[in-house]
Design a binder for these strands. Structure first.
Lengths: 115, 115
DNA sequence: CTCTTGATAAAGCATCTGCTTGAGTAATCC
DNA sequence: GGATTACTCAAGCAGATGCTTTATCAAGAG
C-alpha cells in the first residue's frame, strides 16, 4: 500500500515550493551547503527576507540550519521532497490506470462482437 | 540535457497544489471526469468557491473544462504534473550526486594513504 | 570592554488568497 | 413565453504572504 502522506505537511511543502526564490535556494542547496549570508547574496532583497524564506523551508522540513561560529549553515533534507513526489506520482498512477481500463474497453468493443 | 521548466508555470503549479481542496479535486479527477457540481458536492463550501478552485487548476494547466448541455465536465491533464515532478527530481538527483562524490572522497581518505 | 559580523525578532504595510453573497447567463423543461 | 438547472462573474472581506525597517543578539576581533 502506498504511504499515506499528511495533508498539512503537503500544504506546507507545496506552498514552500510555490516561490521561485525558495525553489532557487533548494536548487542551490542541492549542490552544496551554504550559510544564510551566502544564500542571500544573489537576490535583490534584504538578508532578513532571505532568512524568512529559509524559515519557511525549515518549517516544512526541506532545510535544516545549524550553527558554526557566527554563521548558520543550511543544508537540504531531500527525504522531505519524497512526500511531494509521492503524492503527485499517486495521482498520475491512478490516471494512467484509468486510461488503460478505457483503452481495454475500447479495444474489446472494436474487436469483433460489435452487435 | 534535462528539460528546462518555466518558472512562472511552476509557481502556479505548486501554488495550485498547496491547497488541499484542490489536491483532493485533482485526486478525484485522476479517478474519473466530473462536473463542477459533482466535484463541489462533498465540500462544506459554496459551488462558487469550488468553481474558483477549478479555475486555479485550469489556469495552471492541470485541469480542463468543456461543455455538455448545462454542465461543465472537468478532466485532468496529467502531463502538466510532469513539470512539477521533473523540477523536484532534478533537485534530488543533484543532491544524490553530491552525496556520491562526498562518499567517494571519504572512501579514498580512509583507504590507505591517509598521510 | 567595545566594535564588527552574521544573523534573528518584531512590527508594519501592500498585495494575494480563499471564501462569501448577490447578480447574471446559457441550456433545458413545461 | 416563464421557471429551473448548472453554472460564471463581480464585489467585498478576513486572514495569509512577501517584503521592508528597526531593534536585538551572539560570537569573534581589537
Amino acid at each position: 500500500m502506498a504511504v499515506t502522506i499528511d495533508d498539512e505537511r503537503l500544504d506546507a511543502m507545496f506552498a514552500a515550493l510555490a516561490d521561485r526564490t525558495r525553489r532557487d535556494i533548494v536548487a542551490r542547496l542541492s549542490e552544496r551547503e551554504a550559510t544564510v549570508g551566502e544564500l542571500a547574496a544573489p537576490y535583490a532583497m534584504t538578508l532578513q527576507a532571505v532568512s524568512q524564506h529559509i524559515g519557511v523551508l525549515e518549517r516544512c522540513g526541506l532545510v535544516s540550519r545549524s550553527r558554526h561560529r557566527q554563521t548558520r549553515p543550511c543544508r537540504l533534507e531531500p527525504q522531505a521532497l519524497e512526500a511531494a513526489v509521492s503524492w503527485i506520482e499517486e495521482s498520475r498512477r491512478a490516471w494512467a490506470e484509468r486510461m488503460d481500463r478505457l483503452e481495454a474497453r475500447l479495444a474489446r468493443l472494436q474487436d469483433g462482437q460489435q452487435r
